[in-house]
Structure formats: structure tokens, C-alpha cells
Design a protein around this nucleic acid. Structure first.
Lengths: 345, 345
DNA sequence: CTGAAAGCGCTTACAG
DNA sequence: CTGAAAGCGCTTACAG
């Protein structure tokens, strides 16, 4: 149960403890044979440096925090969405020697992100599921003011100079709607998610522009809103069914797959089948889109790459900081998305 | 950018630094007015203790590691599965003041879990997606030998005395198959996952027992194997189609929903519809089971609770350790599952 | 009830 | 190229 100490290694190798550290950290000039002696001794006793002591001495935790919506709410979000992003973050973190600290937002709505930095629990953090609110803005502004490195994923505060990794949802939505129009649809309903998410607004802009470019009217009566859950799509079904049957709606574009699938499932009891009685396009290219019947046309988003890039940006920032570089200008990355045609459209 | 130090607080409150620590940690007897002075001073200067220094001094990282399959492979597993368990772990961790350190297994197959403990990066860990292999057994045995607290989720090494949280997959599978038998099915195929997972074996045992209890033969010709992915189910479709049409198979029980859905999707081109032309039951009650058409009968597993319990077991172990209690006997928890009837059966 | 001091196990500037 | 020593910011046994 006793940890093997550095002292032991030093004794065995016949050098000072400082030299052991230097060899193990590959720092400073070391005589090759000294290095060998130390390495030999270290592996002999199975020495493992204490990360706790290193972090303390270096004043660096090597942890990158990943902020997630508070637990019960995670379910509301697509698990697909988070898993993909998280995997991407994990891959890049591993590559650069950082640990991932998972942090669920406080249920009480408390947004004290800087506390995590002040307590030195994390060196940087990645915000997932961030949404525009007064508290969130205040919390992010504080991080910025204190120069704590962070990066937003899939959420933008356009007027702010924050690191951001997002996907081109305007174009993605534009393509989705354009596809429906090309397919002959003129009355296209849009089901959006909450407007606290910048990517909801992006989708609306794409939807709107596609209509305008096709010289079709933008009718507020055709814009609905849900909360990105399947249930919220399901609940709109009766209203949508009525309008489809009245020929007021011929196709539907939903801001994510889950709502699209909710709609699709909900319209079946009304005898309405996607792809046959109305066009339907979702968004995200989640696992669900492939397995539903008929399969769901959608827009694929490079979530994995988004996670990777967010991590890369932070690593770059952390290295700059080490190099005493001052003001860093924020990095804003926008990745491409792609429309995927399946059976519902 | 300068962290406010404890020294500052001590000066302001007119006490020693030791007293500041005592007040903030609520340890030892403190005169109420001293406490007030310190608390007042601390909040005045916005003092936040360094977690790094605390962890170092206490020789305790407050981190619980969550070991996940290595990144590319995470996709093979159901994201649903991990999200649920992770949320449960997160909830319990938060409650007890532990941080979650996400650790993806080494792609190289290296299983040096103890290194994480020796480096003091984690105080305990939870194993997700563990499967029976020589390397895994060696790595776990080492943890046990060193008395590093860990807990397995959804995987058992029955002959070993390890902390384990699992669900009663034998009964779950038994119920699923019994339901099919009750529905009049006599030739029930079983699609299992890799046998390195104890829960695959559990499912087979449940399947087998249900047949035996119903005085039906256990026919090896009816047992197939996949890898828990949708694709592996899809690939079995041609063979299954042939057998269904030959009346050799009347129903299928798949070890998870994804394979069941793969089968279901794959049989459609053969004109075979689940629930009409053959009975089908999956396992997990994933999101997918609800959205496919026809909806999939399945077995629901309390993943969230499993995560919670794993964390609770570890917290109890860690507290015991602190209290110098010696040999701890492992905790083995088996949670109940429930069959859910939907349209495919 | 409180202070002075040792100690946790490293890193790293300084001196040689 | 290497050693002696200061310092990182806490906790906690010891003394009073």
C-alpha cells in the first residue's frame, strides 16, 4: 500500500531527487548514463510520480472540464448528440495528455463556472448545451474577463469574442428546405427548437432564405416550436394532421430528428405517412433517423469533429498562455453539414 | 489574475492561517465569533481554496474514474446505454462531492488501471463495458490486490469477490422468452452478443430455462450471435428470413434492441414484418425501441440506477477506508428488470 | 479554542 | 551537467 517514492529512486540511482525529476520530465541537459541509471532504477521499483504533487507544484490540474446540462435534463437532449461530441473531445484530450472532468450544471441554475478555475480544478472548459440566458451570459463574461480559457460548442454569442465551434446550420437548413421545394413542396412547415439556442435561430434563417430564394411566402402560420424532444413533436401531430389534410401544409422540416420522429409517429394514427402523404426532413442524422420506417431524410452534423476541434482550440490557448502570450483572439470554427436524402422526402 | 490567498483572509480576520482552514473545513471547535470573522473576511475577498493544494495535502484526488471502451468503439456500444449509466453516476457523484474523471481505455489494449491510482489521479473507479479477457482479469486482480476501490457495472466475474452492479438479465430474458411462448411460439431463435460479456451468458441462461420450463427443446440451430450492433442484426436477416419462411423459426429474441432493430429492418425486404409474420423481442428499452415501426417489445433495464448504485458503493468503500476499516467484503447488487410488451410480439 | 510548525511530493531558479 | 534548497497552499498533530 505504500507508494514508491522518488527518494527511493534517487538512492538506487545514486543521484539527487532533482535529477530524478529532470530525467522523468525530460528537462534540461542530462548525461546519458545518468539518465539510464535513473530510468533503470525507476522501472525497477515501479515508481509512479504523484500527479497530485505535480499538479500542485505546476499549478496546473491538467483537467479540462466538460460542462453538461444538469442531470435530469440530459435526457431531454439527444444522448446521441452528447456521446458523439464527448467522444471527439475525449480523443483529442487523450492525444494532448489532458484529463476530462465531467461537470453537470447545478440544478439550482447556478452558473459559477469561474469557481472551477479559481479552485484550480480545471485549466480550461468546454460548454455543451449552453443556451442564451442572463445567468449564462454573466457567467461566460466573467470567464472571459478573468481570461479563463473556454470554448462553446454548438452555441454562439455572435456579439461576443468567444471561442466557438459550431456547424453551419444556416446552410444545412437551407439545403433541407431547398430539397423539399425542389421536390415540389410549396407549403413547408417548420418546427423549431427553443430560441435560446443560437442554432435554432440559424435553422430558421436557413428555412426562411430557402423560401425567399424560391419566391415562396414566409408564413408565420407555418412555424411551430417544440423543445427538441420527441414528445414535443408528437404533441404537434393533431394540429399538423388537420393542416395537412386541409392542404395547408405539404411538407415539414423539423429542427432535429427527435421532433421529426415524434411528428412522424404522431401522424400515423391520422393515416398520414411521411414520404407518401407529406414530406419530412429532420436534422442531426441521429441513429434514430436510420431505423425509423420510413427512414428519415435529415442533415448530418459532424459532432465528433466538433468535439475534437473544441479541444484543439483550448490546447492551443493553454500553450499560448504558457508562452506568456497576451491577448488571444477567439477562435470561431464553423464546420460543414450535409443533407441526406432518405425515404421521408 | 492573482488568486486570493488564505494568508490575506487570515490577516483580514486577524487570525492564523490554520484557523482559516479550520473554519472553512468545519473541523475542530471554533469560537463562533472567530468563525464569523473568518467567513466574513473570506467572502469579502472572494477566497476560494485551491483544490490542488487540498488534494495534495489530503492525498486524495476526490476524483472517481469512469472507464469507458476506447473511443472508436464507444460507437459500437449503445450511446443510450452509456448516457444513462453516466447520468446515474454523475448524480450520485455530485451528491457526495466527487468529480468524475472520464477515462477511455487505451486503444493499444493496455489495461493499466492501477497506474491511475498510483499516480493518485483517482480514488476509485467504475468500469463500464468491461469484458472478460486475460488482460482485463489481470488488471482487475491487480486493483483488488492493491485494495484500490472499484466497481463493475453490467459485468460479473462470478468467481471473484469484486464490487458489482448488474441487472437480473437471466430473469429478464426468461420473461421475454416466456412471453413469446405464451403467445404461441414454439420455435424461438436467440441472437446473443459476444460471450465475453457475462450479461450475454445471463441472457442465454434465461432463454434456455424458459424453453426447458415450457418443455420445448433447446436447439443450437436456433442460437445466433452478433456483436450488439445494428449491423450484426442486419447481417443475419437473409438466414433468418429463409428459416422463418421454412417455418423453422416463428419468433426471435435478440440480446439487445439494436440487433433486434437490425433484424427487423433487414427482414422487411423479405416481406417479413415483425409482430405479423414473426414475433420479436429486444432488450434494453432504448430510445430506438419506441420509435421503430412496429414498436419493439423489449426488456427495460434500470441503467440510471445502476450508475447511481455503483457510485454509492464506492463512496461507502472510500468512507470505510478513511475510518481505517480493514478488509471490505465486496458488494454485489442485482437490480430487477421488466418486460415491456409492444407491437412486435 | 488557537497558533506555530512540520509535512504532503513534486518543480525549478540558483549556484557551482 | 547536477545538487541543495525554496516554494507551491493546504492539513493537522502538537502544544498551550
Amino acid at each position: 500500500m505504500f507508494a514508491i517514492s522518488r527518494k527511493e529512486v534517487a538512492r538506487l540511482a545514486g543521484v539527487s531527487e532533482a535529477t530524478v525529476s529532470r530525467v522523468l520530465n525530460n528537462v534540461g541537459p542530462i548525461k546519458p548514463e545518468t539518465r539510464d541509471k535513473v530510468l533503470q532504477a525507476a522501472s525497477e521499483v515501479g515508481y509512479v510520480p504523484s500527479a497530485l504533487a505535480q499538479q500542485f507544484a505546476r499549478k496546473k490540474s491538467d483537467n479540462v472540464g466538460v460542462i453538461l446540462p444538469f442531470v435530469p435534463k440530459v435526457q431531454l437532449f439527444s444522448t446521441f448528440y452528447f456521446s458523439q461530441i464527448l467522444s471527439g473531445i475525449g480523443e483529442a484530450a487523450q492525444k494532448h495528455g489532458y484529463n476530462l472532468l465531467l461537470i453537470f450544471r447545478d440544478p439550482a441554475g447556478n452558473r459559477n463556472y469561474s469557481h472551477l478555475f479559481r479552485a484550480q480544478k480545471i485549466d480550461a472548459c468546454i460548454m455543451l448545451g449552453s443556451s442564451d440566458s442572463e445567468e449564462e451570459r454573466i457567467a461566460l463574461a466573467e470567464l472571459e474577463r478573468e481570461k479563463f480559457p473556454f470554448c462553446l460548442v454548438n452555441q454562439q454569442y455572435s456579439e461576443e469574442n468567444y471561442n466557438t465551434v459550431d456547424a453551419d446550420h444556416v446552410t444545412g437548413s437551407y439545403e433541407a428546405v431547398k430539397h423539399l421545394i425542389t421536390g415540389g413542396h410549396q407549403r413547408i412547415a417548420f418546427i423549431n427548437g427553443p430560441i435560446q439556442f443560437s442554432n435554432s435561430n440559424d435553422r430558421f434563417r436557413g428555412y426562411r432564405q430557402a423560401l425567399i430564394d424560391a419566391k415562396l411566402p414566409v408564413d408565420n402560420e407555418l412555424v411551430f416550436s417544440g423543445n427538441y424532444s420527441r414528445t414535443s413533436g408528437l404533441q404537434l401531430a393533431p394540429e399538423l394532421a388537420r393542416r395537412i389534410k386541409d392542404n395547408q401544409i405539404s411538407a415539414i422540416f423539423a429542427a432535429n430528428d427527435r421532433m421529426a420522429i415524434g411528428v412522424m409517429n404522431g401522424l400515423v394514427p391520422f393515416g398520414l405517412v411521411a414520404g407518401r402523404d407529406y414530406g419530412l426532413v429532420g436534422y442531426d442524422n441521429s441513429d434514430g433517423a436510420k431505423i425509423v420506417t420510413p427512414s428519415l431524410s435529415t442533415v448530418t452534423v459532424p459532432f465528433y469533429e466538433m468535439g475534437q476541434q473544441a479541444m484543439e482550440i483550448l490546447v492551443a490557448d493553454l500553450n499560448k498562455k504558457t508562452a506568456q502570450q497576451q491577448r488571444m483572439t477567439a477562435n470561431k470554427v464553423l464546420l460543414p453539414v450535409a443533407f441526406i436524402k432518405r425515404e421521408t422526402s
